[in-house]
Amino acid sequence: MTIKIGDKAPNFTLADTNEKSIALKDYSTKSILVVIFSCNHCPYAQAWENRIIAIQDSYKSQGVQILVISSNDAIQYPADNFDEMKKRAQEKNYNFPYLYDESQKVAHSYGAEKTPEVFVFDQSRTLKYHGAIDDNFDDEGSVQIHYLKNALNELVNNSSPTVPTSEPVGCTIKWKN
């Protein structure tokens, strides 16, 4: 079941594409933590990828940390295996940790279903926003509602997001059989 607004962030420790062990608590000094379930192969993830990089860049100075997690079954979807994740992170010069949830336990603990799917937590790691990055995967120039940016803008100003949820749009997470 997907975590709800007001729930605490489920803890995890995962390897990133630099083979460094990353835990949620490592970012305790960050005022806002954004956990995004994504992957390599999904065209929706690819369509939004540059926007995720830009958001991390824009909000870094305001204490926002993005963590991107891939939970897809790499046996059925080899483009999402750990080596391919490493390549992708390097090619795209990711400015956030890209974590491999091989067991899929983290995706299950968050109740994530799509890629990309966003969970935003405040300083106390309480869920404040869950959903999509914005409302137009196909054309960044035609975005009407910047869900994630709006939520971050409100949170950095110590307000709760006025739109706390939206419908994530993307590929389904590829579960192991």
Binding site: H41, C42, P43, A47, Q76, Y77, A79, D138, K174
Partner: peptide, 20 residues
Amino acid sequence: PHFALACRAYKLPDGKISPL
């Protein structure tokens, strides 16, 4: 090609990727 229940990525003229 990898035949699977997946979404397909199309390259747009500007190089961006789209599911359409």
